[in-house]
Nucleic acid binder design. Structure first.
Length: 610
DNA sequence: CGAGCCAGCG
């Protein structure tokens, strides 16, 4: 096989170094593989030994390497570079740029070695060197090294170059040193839009959302006009703040200033509107997006689920499929989450099969979502099987299965896995404890629950939240220790909320404590006057105690105070159809049969005395 | 020769 295709690289006669060089460069650019590149390189070494062409040709070769295998085959470029005699600063810049693009920290650190090497050789780094060195530091989280390079920059008098300043700010931002970002920003003789965006993003990434948005307004005051990237960052801050009016203000700004509307900006808008609770408007933005990508779909799927609109979320997934858009991990996690909350076992299983078929390892987010889906859809054994099959388990994995087991009344197994988690050295968090305490509740393990509650703070330094207190009140209350539960509430360090009082009210119902229930009821109504839960529970307590008149009074009070009824809702999927059930809603075609069956079950339970 | 962006689990 000839090295060059005849059409583009016939060596011209008479021999002309310059036109030959031009052809070689073009040939390098069109290389499709490292092997091809190697062949051309060996040709060059033999045919054009002239060093004058070295610079350009090697620059091209390195950038071709980067184009062919963006993150792998660095070894070839590396070995080529070491063969060069006295590479110029530009060539050093090229190789540093090449290595700085690597995502893994080991390779990006190699870029730093080249930087040290050029200093040792007495070369002078320039304003094209530092941006890549800082990028390499940022990618490998090499803060210390970065700080030393920062000192070099000051020595070399390059602190006024915007590219240098901006990449340095970026380095400090990804290392979470927001003070240093600000210092570099303030210390720079000039700032541009990228400087502002980098500063804002540094704030937003650290969770200083409000400050980030304030900085955006400062930026406008300083006479800058934002571009799409700035907007994406500011919108994500609004999304995290959940501040719809602020988000709208930003959207208005974008329309006023005619900020370029691309897919990134569109996705950020969709996400912002959903997280701020305006699903309708996010639909509008989504529908009007001229170009959508997988992120657009994923934002809708997970965002709608966050708003509790699980059915819509699944519908978006189906739309996505009918459009033939390729799904990714994010999509699958999102749809599994919606399945879990809808009881859509069949679709959940389909996702599981899809994973197997496409050889997607169900570790990490996907595995955890899968466990949760099976558990919430009632297939706790399948959840356990997935759990056993996972190679990597984290706090989410354990918490999902513990909560799932607790829900299914398998408290002992939940606690076993909690202890296993400890042996594995995985730190539980507040949610894990909600799971184990719930497990104790459902099995009536009073002492165990008490010990765990105390351990939570003493051993794990997790401050109990009202959910945890609620579990404990529930546990004490179910065990019949009503006055202890009351005492427990009095000892709370945080203000008891509806969770806690609700648990006590529940205990009153089980044990028929009408007087206490009345007092608890008062507290509950004060905390959440427009919720119906407490009223309904109270009315049930009265009717259980045969106090029909009082029961009726409660119902009437609900009507008078216009208490909105939040209907309890559950759903299940049978043969691909989702059946929804709401409290007091008899619209299901088989309502009669269902109620008869339920009565039969209820009778069975009483019969067994459980 | 060069900088910054969006989405996920309990």
């Amino acid at each position: 096989m000839s090295l060059f295709c005849s059409s583009c690289l016939k060596i011209p006669q008479p021999f002309d170094v310059h036109s030959q060089e031009h052809l070689v460069l073009r040939r390098i650019e069109s290389c499709k593989s490292i092997q091809e590149l190697k062949r051309i390189h060996s040709y060059i070494v033999k045919a054009i030994p002239s060093l004058s062409t070295q610079q350009l040709i090697y620059t091209k070769i390195f950038s071709s390497c980067a184009a062919i295998s963006p993150s792998t085959d660095l070894s070839y470029a590396h070995s080529l570079f070491t063969q060069l005699q006295n590479p110029s600063i530009s060539l050093y810049n090229t190789i540093i740029r090449y290595f700085s693009r690597c995502k893994n920290s080991e390779d990006s650190l190699t870029a730093l070695l080249f930087y040290r090497e050029l200093l040792v050789k007495g070369l002078f780094p320039n304003c094209y060197t530092y941006p890549f060195v800082f990028k390499a530091c940022a990618q490998s989280g090499a803060l210390r090294e970065g700080e030393m390079v920062h000192a070099d920059v000051i020595k070399n008098g390059l602190v006024s170059d915007l590219y240098v300043v901006n990449t340095l700010m970026r380095l400090y931002a990804v290392c979470g040193v927001i003070g240093a970002v600000r210092k570099v920003f303030d210390g720079s003789p000039q700032q541009d839009l990228v400087s502002w965006t980098t500063l804002i993003q540094g704030c937003v990434d650290m969770g200083y959302w409000k400050e980030g948005v304030e900085l955006f307004f400062d930026m406008c005051g300083a006479g800058f006009r934002a571009d799409g990237m700035t907007m994406v960052v500011v919108l994500s801050a609004c999304a995290n703040l959940g501040d719809l009016s602020l988000g709208r203000k930003i959207h208005d700004y974008m329309r006023d200033q005619k900020v370029q509307f691309d897919v990134f900006v569109g996705n950020a808008l969709v996400d912002m509107y959903l997280k701020c609770g305006d699903a309708n408007f996010s639909w509008k933005v989504f529908d009007e997006m001229p170009v959508k990508n997988v992120v657009s779909w994923n934002s809708m799927i997970s965002g709608l689920a966050q708003q509790g609109k699980y059915k819509e979320s699944v519908n978006v997934f189906r739309m996505m499929q009918s459009r033939g858009t390729k799904v990714d991990d994010f999509t699958l996690v999102g749809v599994l989450n919606s399945c879990a909350n809808l009881g859509m076992l069949e679709l959940g299983k389909w996702v599981h099969a899809y994973l197997d078929k496409n050889q997607i390892t169900a570790d990490g987010f996907i595995g955890n979502a899968l466990i949760d889906m099976y558990a919430k859809c009632g297939s706790i054994d399948e959840a356990l099987r997935v759990f056993e099959g996972l190679k990597c388990r984290d706090v989410y994995t354990y918490t999902s299965i513990i909560v799932g087991l607790a829900m299914h009344g398998r408290g002992e197994r939940a606690l076993e896995l909690f202890r296993e988690m400890y042996r594995m050295g995985i730190e539980p968090d507040g949610v894990t404890f909600v799971g184990v305490l719930t497990a104790c509740c459902h099995v009536g393990l009073l002492d165990e629950g008490m010990n765990l509650f105390l351990e939570m703070f003493r051993v794990y330094h997790i401050k109990p939240q009202t959910e945890h207190y609620g579990c404990m009140v529930d546990l004490l209350g179910r065990s019949g220790l009503i006055s202890e539960a009351e005492k427990f509430i009095k000892s709370m360090l945080v203000e008891p909320d509806a969770f806690v009082w609700g648990a006590l009210l529940g205990a009153c119902r089980i044990h028929g404590k009408v007087e206490l229930a009345e007092r608890v009821m008062e507290k509950l109504v004060k905390i959440q006057p427009e919720e119906d839960g407490a009223y309904i529970l109270m009315s049930n307590i009265y009717s259980s105690a045969s106090k029909w008149r009082e029961s009726l009074k409660i119902r009437k009070a609900m009507k008078e105070r216009k208490i909105k009824k939040t209907p309890g809702c559950s759903s299940i999927e049978v043969d691909g159809v989702v059946h929804e059930f709401r409290k007091g809603d008899n619209s299901h075609p088989k309502t009669k049969d269902i109620h008869m069956f339920l009565d039969a079950i209820a009778g069975h339970i009483t019969f067994n005395g459980t």
